[in-house]
Protein backbone atom coordinates (compact mmCIF):
# COMPACT_ATOMS: atom_id res chain seq x y z
CA UNK A 1 0.00 0.00 0.00
CA UNK A 2 1.42 3.37 -0.97
CA UNK A 3 0.65 6.24 1.35
CA UNK A 4 2.74 8.67 -0.68
CA UNK A 5 5.56 8.54 1.84
CA UNK A 6 7.80 5.90 3.34
CA UNK A 7 10.07 5.46 6.27
CA UNK A 8 13.69 6.43 5.54
CA UNK A 9 16.40 3.86 5.87
CA UNK A 10 18.06 4.12 9.23
CA UNK A 11 21.52 5.61 8.84
CA UNK A 12 22.72 5.17 12.37
CA UNK A 13 26.43 4.54 12.74
CA UNK A 14 27.51 2.82 15.89
CA UNK A 15 30.96 4.25 16.35
CA UNK A 16 31.83 1.57 18.90
CA UNK A 17 31.15 -1.28 16.53
CA UNK A 18 32.56 -0.15 13.20
CA UNK A 19 35.55 -1.89 11.70
CA UNK A 20 38.39 0.61 11.58
CA UNK A 21 40.93 -1.65 9.86
CA UNK A 22 40.61 -0.06 6.41
CA UNK A 23 40.84 3.42 7.90
CA UNK A 24 43.94 2.47 9.86
CA UNK A 25 45.57 1.02 6.79
CA UNK A 26 44.90 4.19 4.83
CA UNK A 27 46.34 6.24 7.70
CA UNK A 28 49.42 4.06 7.61
CA UNK A 29 49.97 4.73 3.89
CA UNK A 30 48.75 8.34 3.88
CA UNK A 31 48.94 9.85 7.39
CA UNK A 32 47.89 13.15 5.82
CA UNK A 33 44.21 12.40 6.29
CA UNK A 34 44.39 13.00 10.02
CA UNK A 35 44.98 16.66 9.25
CA UNK A 36 41.56 17.11 7.62
CA UNK A 37 39.25 19.69 9.20
CA UNK A 38 36.34 18.84 6.88
CA UNK A 39 36.16 22.40 5.57
CA UNK A 40 34.88 21.24 2.20
CA UNK A 41 37.18 23.32 0.00
CA UNK A 42 38.03 20.15 -1.88
CA UNK A 43 34.40 19.40 -2.70
CA UNK A 44 33.75 23.00 -3.67
CA UNK A 45 36.59 23.01 -6.21
CA UNK A 46 35.99 19.51 -7.58
CA UNK A 47 36.26 19.29 -11.36
CA UNK A 48 33.68 16.58 -11.82
CA UNK A 49 31.09 17.80 -9.30
CA UNK A 50 29.06 19.19 -12.20
CA UNK A 51 28.71 15.72 -13.66
CA UNK A 52 28.49 13.78 -10.41
CA UNK A 53 27.31 15.67 -7.36
CA UNK A 54 28.38 12.81 -5.08
CA UNK A 55 32.00 13.28 -6.06
CA UNK A 56 33.68 14.70 -3.00
CA UNK A 57 36.92 14.09 -1.18
CA UNK A 58 35.43 15.19 2.13
CA UNK A 59 32.57 12.69 1.84
CA UNK A 60 35.07 9.96 1.05
CA UNK A 61 37.02 10.69 4.22
CA UNK A 62 33.87 10.62 6.34
CA UNK A 63 32.82 7.38 4.67
CA UNK A 64 36.15 5.70 5.27
CA UNK A 65 36.13 6.69 8.93
CA UNK A 66 32.73 5.03 9.22
CA UNK A 67 33.78 2.00 7.22
CA UNK A 68 31.10 2.74 4.63
CA UNK A 69 32.52 1.11 1.48
CA UNK A 70 29.60 2.10 -0.76
CA UNK A 71 30.00 5.69 0.39
CA UNK A 72 33.70 5.65 -0.56
CA UNK A 73 32.98 4.20 -3.97
CA UNK A 74 30.22 6.70 -4.67
CA UNK A 75 32.33 9.67 -3.74
CA UNK A 76 35.51 8.57 -5.51
CA UNK A 77 34.26 6.70 -8.58
CA UNK A 78 34.24 9.80 -10.77
CA UNK A 79 37.51 11.26 -9.52
CA UNK A 80 39.81 12.25 -12.39
CA UNK A 81 42.76 13.01 -10.07
CA UNK A 82 43.03 16.55 -11.44
CA UNK A 83 44.49 17.71 -8.14
CA UNK A 84 42.56 20.94 -7.71
CA UNK A 85 41.54 19.77 -4.24
CA UNK A 86 45.16 19.45 -3.14
CA UNK A 87 45.89 22.98 -4.38
CA UNK A 88 43.04 24.54 -2.42
CA UNK A 89 43.41 22.47 0.76
CA UNK A 90 44.17 24.84 3.66
CA UNK A 91 45.80 21.97 5.57
CA UNK A 92 48.11 21.00 2.73
CA UNK A 93 46.81 17.45 2.43
CA UNK A 94 48.14 15.53 -0.55
CA UNK A 95 44.62 14.54 -1.57
CA UNK A 96 45.63 12.66 -4.71
CA UNK A 97 48.01 10.50 -2.69
CA UNK A 98 45.17 9.67 -0.28
CA UNK A 99 42.76 8.84 -3.11
CA UNK A 100 45.26 6.57 -4.82
CA UNK A 101 46.07 4.88 -1.52
CA UNK A 102 42.37 4.22 -0.87
CA UNK A 103 41.87 2.87 -4.39
CA UNK A 104 44.93 0.63 -4.20
CA UNK A 105 43.76 -0.74 -0.82
CA UNK A 106 40.23 -1.37 -2.08
CA UNK A 107 41.72 -3.15 -5.07
CA UNK A 108 43.86 -5.31 -2.78
CA UNK A 109 40.78 -6.20 -0.71
CA UNK A 110 38.83 -7.09 -3.83
CA UNK A 111 41.46 -9.61 -4.86
Amino acid sequence: MDFGYNIIKIKTVDLDRIDKSLYNRVVFVAPDINKCIACGSCSASCSVSFYNSNSSFRKALVAIERDDITGIKESLSSCVLCGKCSLVCPRGINTRGVIIAIKDLLKEEAL
Partner: peptide, 13 residues
Protein backbone atom coordinates in the same frame (compact mmCIF):
# COMPACT_ATOMS: atom_id res chain seq x y z
CA UNK B 1 38.43 -6.37 -14.11
CA UNK B 2 38.24 -7.47 -10.48
CA UNK B 3 38.27 -3.88 -9.28
CA UNK B 4 35.11 -3.29 -7.31
CA UNK B 5 34.80 0.39 -8.10
CA UNK B 6 31.74 0.81 -10.31
CA UNK B 7 32.18 1.53 -14.00
CA UNK B 8 33.03 5.18 -14.27
CA UNK B 9 30.15 7.30 -15.43
CA UNK B 10 31.92 10.58 -15.64
CA UNK B 11 29.55 12.08 -18.15
CA UNK B 12 26.12 10.86 -17.14
CA UNK B 13 24.65 14.33 -17.30
Amino acid sequence: SKLELPESKIVDK
